[in-house]
Every structure is written in C-alpha cells, then in structure tokens.
Design a protein around this nucleic acid. Sequence first.
RNA 1: GCUUCUGUAGCUUAAUUGGAUAAAGCAUCAGAUUGCGGAUCUGAAGAGUAUAGGUUCGAAUCCUAUCAGAAGCACCA
Length: 545
Amino acid sequence: MDIDNITTTIGDIILKKYNIKEKVEISLPKDLSHGDYSTNIILKLYSKYKIDREQCFKYIQESLPQYDLEIMNFFINIFIKEESYKNIFNSKESIKKKNEKVLVEYSSPNIAKPFSIGHLTTTIIGDSIYRIYKYLGYNTTNDNHIGDWGVQFGKLIYAIKEWGDINTIEKDPINELNKLYVRFHSEEENNPQSLEKAKEYSKQLADNNKEITDYWEKIVDWSMSEFNKTYSLLDIKFENTYGESFYYKIAQDIINKAIKDKIAVIEDNAVVIYTEKEKKPLIIRKSDNTTLYASHDLATIQYRVQDLKIDTIIYEIGVEQKQYIEQMFKAAKLLNLYNKNTKLILISNGFIRLPGGEKMSTRKGKTIKLNTLIEEARIKTQILLKERNIEDPDIIDKIAIGAIKFNVLKRHYSSDIVFEWDKVLNFEGDTSVYIQYTYVRCLSLLRNITISDSNIILDTNEEKYLLRNIYRFQDYLDLAKLSPNILAEYLLNISRLYNLIYSKHNILKEENIDIKNTRLKITQKTMETIKQGLELLGINTVEKM
RNA sequence: GCUUCUGUAGCUUAAUUGGAUAAAGCAUCAGAUUGCGGAUCUGAAGAGUAUAGGUUCGAAUCCUAUCAGAAGCACCA
C-alpha cells in the first residue's frame, strides 16, 4: 500500500520545511493520465498560507524519488515507475497487522420472522465490510445482533397458546410462526386484551418464568436453525451471535447507574434520557420496569468496549433506525460507556422496495422471501448453463448467489433498491457474471500452459493500465472498506481492461516470446486479483461456466 | 406539524467526501467472428446534476429558499 508512505512523507516534508501541520489527502485517479496517486496539497497550502507553489513542489519531488512527479493545475500527479509495477509479478505484497480491534454488526434479523430480501442489504454489505477489514489486517470480528427479546415474544407465545399446534410449527417453523404473528396483529384490533396478555408474557420472560422461558427457547432454536441454513447458503459465518437476550441484565445495571448519576430521569413511570433540548428523550426502561431495545443497545456498547475491548464498532443498519441510533450514541456518550479512542460508525443502508415502490411489511405479510429469490436465480442460471452442458449444482449456486450479492454490492449502501426481477437476475453488463466470466477466460487460457521465465515487456498502454490498477489493489481496498461498491466497481474495471487486451491480441499466437510471457503473467495476475476481490465481496469464482 | 434523508443521460446506478473534460451498465443505432470461451470487443448518440440564488481559485457535493418524494417522531426493534 503506497498511500500511507506518500501521505506521511509529504506530511513530514511540509512540517520540516514550513513548520505547518496539514492533513495530506491522496486520491486514486481513475484517469491514469492524472497519475496513479494525486494530491491537492499545494492548492490547500497556497490558499491558506500563500506558500511558493513551485518551491513546495520541488521539496515534495525530492522527498519522493521512487516516483515520477508532475505538477498540473497545481495538482501533484504521482506516477509509479514502470520498474515498480513490473515488479508485482515477483513480489507478494504483505499486509501489516494492525492493533485496532474492529467489530462489524450486521444482518441482525428478528427471531420468528422470515428472512426476506429486506435483510439482504445489511447482511451482504456488512459481510463484505467484515471481510475487507479482516483482509487489511485489522483485528476484526463480527456480531449478529439478533432480535431475540421483547414484546414480540409475548405476542408469539400468546398466539401459540391460543391457536398454535407444536407439531405443525416444527415442520415449518418460521412460516408457521409468521402466520401466527400476522394473525395476532389482525385479531388484536378486535380483542385489545390480547396485547395486555402478550405484554404480561414478555414480562414473565424477563422474570424467568419456567413455562414462558421454555417457549422462548423453542422459538429461538427453531428460528436460528432456519437462519443458519440461509447463512450457509450465502456463505456467511458469524463469530458472535449474542442477541438482545444476552444484554437485558447488563441493561438493568446501566439503567440503575444512570438514575443514580442523574443522567436519566423518571417520567410517567418510565426511565428516560434527554440527549438534546427540544427533542424527545430516549426511553431506556418501560413503565412496567422491563428493558427495551434502547437499553439493550446501550448495554451492547458497554460490553463491546469494556469486555471485548473493541476500538471501532461498525453498525450496518437500515435507514429507518438511523435517527434512533444517533440518539442512542449520544446517550451512550452521556453515560460514559465508551472512551475517546472508541469509534462508533453508522452505515445506514436504504430500503428494498417491492415493484411499484411499495414498502415491505412482515405484519401484513407483504414480503419476498430470500429463499424465493435464490430459487428464481438458480432456475435462471440452470437454464443458461444447460445450453453449455453444465449441470453442476455447485456452479449454479456460485453464479446465482453471486449475482444476487453483486446486485446489492455494486450500489452505494445508502441507495434504495426497487426490487425488479429482471434487473436482479440480469447477467450482462455490470454484473458478477461478467467478472466470473473473465476469470474463467483467464483460467481457460492458462490451462495446460507453463509460463517460462523471460523479460517483462509491456507492449501496449492497456497492459500498463491494467497492471497499474492491479498494483493499487490494496489502496482501493482501503477506500472500499466502508463502501464495498468501490471494490465492485474496481473489479469491473479490471475485467473490462483484461477483456480489451484479450480481444485485441491473440496471446497464444504472439511470436515475441517476451511479450507473450508477459501477457500470460498478466493473465495470471488478473485471475488472482479477481479471485481475491470477489472473495472480499463474498462471491465465489467458478472453474467453468 | 417537527426532525432527517433523497432528487445526476429514456431507465438503473458511479463520482475517492470541495478538485482536473460528471463515469458506467441497460435500452437504441452502427460495426468486429470459422476465435486463447461472443455471458466478449469497438464505435455513435445521450445529462451539466429538481429549480432559483449564494460562498469558493474551484460545487453534483457546502449555505439559503422553493418544488417533488421517502423515512423517523416515547414505552415495537
């Protein structure tokens, strides 16, 4: 990773020559005629301190002899020397281990609700963020903060007792539980006492009532075993699955301390924290003395910071919770639950809407289940592969699930997605299939070939562009660690460049042995980069398609 | 009503967080093929970023107003 070196070198020389501490920002131009790296530091220094721009450029140039520098419109364009990027064939870049401990919270489904396409964004983007951080050497872990506590269990237990049949439920747990949940909400309108009863059950759950706790355990087990099937299909593994139930006791301690320290006050029998003037306070204990999501989330911060010693917590969560989470962060600060070195990062992703822009709703039963989507994708993939005489179910899965994931990952996390079948299952253009296809092309070219040692000759610009992009892989990852769409775009770009080279030059028929071998090595390097990059998006490569 | 977010080619999205000529894919039109895998490649056409002001050497990005859409608004998560 060159950016770190360039940043500190320039920062140092400015401090030394001008006694100015200025943040140096290095960007990765996509247009390589602006260099492999570029910075506007001279413009910044000039507008603030009126330094001599030519002189400043000279200082910087002298401090970075391993690059070719030019100054244009007072941007400094930094070019990697050809001998440097030629070198990537020989050296394997090592990644420095970092002390920073990072936790990514994502997916976080509610127990007893079907895993719908609405969970796709947080699950897939969160997982990619986790993978990238880990790859970059951060001490990284992940946590599926499942919703396994609260009034919804009272409702479910009420519904099971009234209308449920254990045998029927066990055959198809989530669907049956969801039916019961939907029924509860439609009956609740006619029978207001049902909600009172449900709340009583959830209070009994917090009080460890044996019968109620047994129901709760069953419901959680049924759901988790179904969720785990989905996760294994999506190739997602969680190191931690604490869930809200883990935190309700810690939450009580936090609430008591908050009252004692006069940070929280009691209003209408509930315990609340005022985070800002003129804004509604955050409720951390309900008037029936039970805890709720806000108190669990506060307890979660405390546990992660104090017990797990996490430095950076990344929340991958839907926008509908954004304002609440920000308020909860403020309350956590008032309560001193984290210290100055802790970073709380909120990644709030957009909605997935049904065709026509309608919002999904579990209560009304208006959802598209993830399993349905995966099934459709498989069928489409199967048909296309059959034309090529491939029937391997493993290949079908890797392509189908890759396409589903990529469709989410190629967008910025905050953008809303209107779900349309033909767009999600489109296999042409900006898709994972295009990248996987490029990989297969490379693989197929190198099949039965051994690359002999020879000189590296980069004959054309497109080859240089491709190599220079591959050289910057880690720099791009650093940029992409909170926005995997940057990595997705990067991989598309690498693939486009390779396909251009492939179509322009017949590599195997090339007579100049050095040029031929260089192209084979480029092919090899492209393959490695694509495989690694896709892996960080949670997408697999295939050997044929 | 208050708070927050969004508005970029016909459509779906990018734009390294205030930088260089706003970048791709789909769709449209015109081309490449007995080829190392055409799920490919080349080219054309297509927006000056909802609107009107402002700040700045520089604005899709910041500020103000207006229009349109979405989300959140105390005991659900």
